[in-house]
Amino acid sequence: MRFWIAVIPLVLFAALAGIFLTNIGKDQSVIPSALIGKPAPEFSLPPLPGRDKGISRADLTQGHVSVVNVFASWCVPCRAEHPMIKRLAAEAGVPVYGLNYKEKDPQDGVNWLDELGDPYTAVGMDISGRTGIDFGVYGVPETFIIDGDGKIAYKQVGPIDAETLENVLLPKIRELKKG
């Protein structure tokens, strides 16, 4: 009895400590999306000024995999992420739609794309941020992979780097394309 009084709490304690130790350094600020496996929300966004094609849910239900990337000209990591979006658009072989999130001035988004290049199949403008909320966006940039039925299959929070692109996003897209 006395042995167990000594040992059980210590074992419990060691288990707790183990959990804490293994979780240290893992970022806890990323909140997995509540929308994984759910159909992408209904939306329809106008095009950027001077362009003719916006995006809507209909674009995502064409029977093929697609990607929605949430970006904004005021968002610093978006700039860092941009080359990866270009690679994604070139290598994945699926349409990459841009969701231009909460620009103060609609022209900002156009200028940004003019400066850095435009990898997007089409870009929709979300001035109010309402579509962003429907997608569960809480910090730009965020990237969604949508399967052929228009269901959200994967969500990446934060900027994409080369490693995430090669090891996470592209394999995921390939897998979805196979069906």
């Binding site: 350094g25 970022d27 600020s29 968002c75 610093v76 990591p77 860092a80 992420e81 910090g139 730009v140 929070v157 934060g158 900027p159 994409i160 780097d161 490693e163 995430t164």
Partner: peptide
């Protein structure tokens, strides 16, 4: 061991 983008995410947030 934390990818640099997370640091940047923190900054942007």
């Amino acid at each position: 061991n934390r990818p640099i983008w997370l640091a940047m995410l923190a900054v942007v947030l």
